[in-house]
Amino acid sequence: MSLAPFIAQLRPSAASLRALGLLVLLLALLLVSSGAFSGQQLLDNARQAAPLGIIVLAQALILMMGRLDLSVGATAGLANVVLATSFAGDMANIGTALALTLIFGLAVGLANGLLVVVLRIPAFLATLAMSLIIAGGLLVFTGGSPRGSIPASFRVVTEGWIAGVLPWSVVVWALVAGLLSVLVHFTMTGRRMLLSGANMRAARLNGIASDRMVILAFMLSSLLATLGGILLSAITGMATIGIADSYTVDSIAAAVIGGALFSGGVFLPLGAALGALILFILQSLLYVLSLPPAAKFIMQGAIIVVALALANLKKER
């Protein structure tokens, strides 16, 4: 019995390895400049990067479908407000709170999927409109000052470490990345999604229910964005309007660092995870260097331009 086909599915792509190289380089620079950078610190960075990391996975999944989800930030923000409001600071509400938050997330994804598939609206515009509707809805619902808070015992999700070695949030993040890898690389549904993402028309003509695959991808994306929002809430402990807005462009930047392409048909969970970690470390570096917050946006844009330019140059060679 040969395991080769299974191992081949898991072999990291060249793009993921490049991202890994970039991360090592970045860590080496940090080590040289600050003199000390421990594995502990890296894990702590990963702990805080987990919400972003999961949202990047959402974006990477939609990029695999050859589309763009500009509502992931708003969806994560929605999760934050819904979670805090329904928790109302009491751990006893955990069941309702989580269920309600996930239902809202799935509803957003379903709506995105239907707008794209049934009404044939280009995904980036449908999700842009969706993020506007969510933002407006939150303002109307909360009157601009959301109430509620996350109970301390739930905040363990991002604040806590298993046996003091491994942060919970990193475990969640790795678990989600692993499940998505299994979905895309080991299941029929995932293969159908991949084929639909690489060429929607051809997939449909070969009998694949591509429309359903797109809706499924958008629902998964919003679900993951919601999960990211939940982890983020566990860090902040309260509801804040627009808390996750910058995650939308962040997620695109991190995904392209990790080798995602806008042409679809590529899914690199390892690359996405590394991209998120790199982006997070770069952003905290800006903070350490006490650069103004404005620098963060310039970096976002510059990363997208440089990463895509490099990918295109490589393609042409």
Partner: peptide, 28 residues
């Protein structure tokens, strides 16, 4: 445009019907 997913490997482009018939519990 109508037949192939150009960015994907030959294997995935050829195997669609073969794997549909041999899949177990939804796994490839």
């Amino acid at each position: 445009h109508d037949g192939l997913a150009l960015s994907l490997p030959i294997r995935m482009n050829m195997s669609l019907f073969a794997i549909s018939e041999k899949a177990r519990f939804g796994f490839l």
